[in-house]
Write a protein that binds this DNA or RNA. Structure first.
Lengths: 215, 215
DNA sequence: AAATTAATTGAATATTCATTTAATTTTTTT
DNA sequence: AAAAAAATTAAATGAATATTCAATTAATTT
């Protein structure tokens, strides 16, 4: 029995072109017709492979997540010097290259779509949770080495992610054509001082708030 | 000579309904037809007032920014105790209510649109820069009072905004149904420890990076 | 080489969309 | 009350959309 061989070639091909049209024309302008025209194929061929546009969009999300999680990006196990390994992790996460793994416009677009489409939300949520868990595991290693002294590793990981995502925002709206690294380095310091501060806990400000917050 | 009186009533009315349809149906589903049906008016009346959908969208952006910048939100001049005023500012910025000034879905949607539409981008950029300037002015006051010790006020303000926006992301993807305040308080501490740390500068980590970063 | 299955195209559909132009109703001014 | 202007509706347009079903072409298996 013959298997659908071309599907495994065609589908990624179509998704690649979908991504391109998306980055050129935006989500509003990215139609099946335009993708087809770009590939010199018939629109119905795209439907044939993906059944519907929604399916195709979700498969693109899956593909992008796969790319984002490519093992080569955050593989630092081979580095012996732990202080160096720690630095490289932080440097990578706050680097320009890392922030551009996915086109920022498309990045924001899919975040928006995750508000509308539960399947997309599910996938992003799971991806970010995996990333968080990865960070916690890494921080745990550095904590045992005495490089990192913060107590609540989960919250620390969340701060890293929060700043990382906020940086995306900053780069778009506040960077004033300054190089990405300039502010990213400052953000990095905020993270480093949090991670290396053994007295860092979430209590002191919390107490203050209860006292001072006026409704 | 008779002036277009109803325009000043109708236009905000239409924008209000546009916002509602937007939050119910998303950007893809928010059509002039649906807004009109919701208002029991004819679609062409909407075009009559706004000339085009794009114009209408930009006017909605302007309206939302105006709401966001409503003077009652961040008016703390009346508070005598400076430490208290400082706390209240930080508490407000990291409060759930503040994060929900605009529906988060629509928030993300417009951020996305700002990648596609230069006019929208322009407006958001200007708004965020105004907010940054406001923060710098406030921080300057607290610095002179000795409450805040950080040196680079602009960078400090940017960190606050970056974390604030990152929190929006965190609330959507990482909150795990925990109340907003729980993690926001932790983020607040990160900000407070940065602001109150007189030794905080952007140098030490920067030097480390040059040494350790491997291409 | 015939039969089978997959790949691809063609044509048609029905819907939705923003926008235009003209006609009508309502309100205001004279 | 007549005239003028604005508010609103009606109808039509044309373009773009995703998707369907049937027909055709190409490749593979028997």
């Amino acid at each position: 029995m013959r298997k659908n061989q071309k599907a495994e070639i065609r589908k990624p091909e179509i998704l690649e072109n979908y991504y391109q049209v998306l980055s050129e024309e935006g989500f509003e302008g990215a139609s099946i017709g335009k993708i087809a025209k770009r590939m010199n194929i018939h629109p119905s061929l795209i439907i044939h492979y993906f059944k519907s546009k929604e399916n195709m969009t979700i498969e693109l999300v899956d593909l992008l997540i796969k790319k984002y999680e490519a093992p080569e990006f955050l593989q630092f196990n081979h580095i012996q010097n732990m202080e160096q390994r720690f630095q490289l992790l932080i440097d990578t996460i706050f680097s320009f290259e890392w922030s551009r793994t996915i086109d920022p416009g498309i990045h924001f677009g899919f975040y928006y779509l995750s508000f509308r489409n539960p399947k997309i939300r599910e996938r992003y949520e799971a991806m970010i949770q995996r990333f968080r868990n990865y960070l916690i595991r890494e921080l745990d290693v550095y904590q045992k080495e005495g490089i990192v002294k913060v107590k609540d590793l989960k919250k620390a990981a969340d701060i890293i992610i929060t700043l990382m995502e906020g940086l995306e925002f900053h780069a778009h709206f506040l960077s004033e054509r300054q190089p990405f690294e300039k502010f990213a380095n400052y953000a990095k310091n905020v993270v480093l001082s949090m991670l290396r501060d053994e007295t860092f806990s979430s209590n002191f400000a919390g107490l203050m708030n209860i006292r001072n917050f006026v409704k």
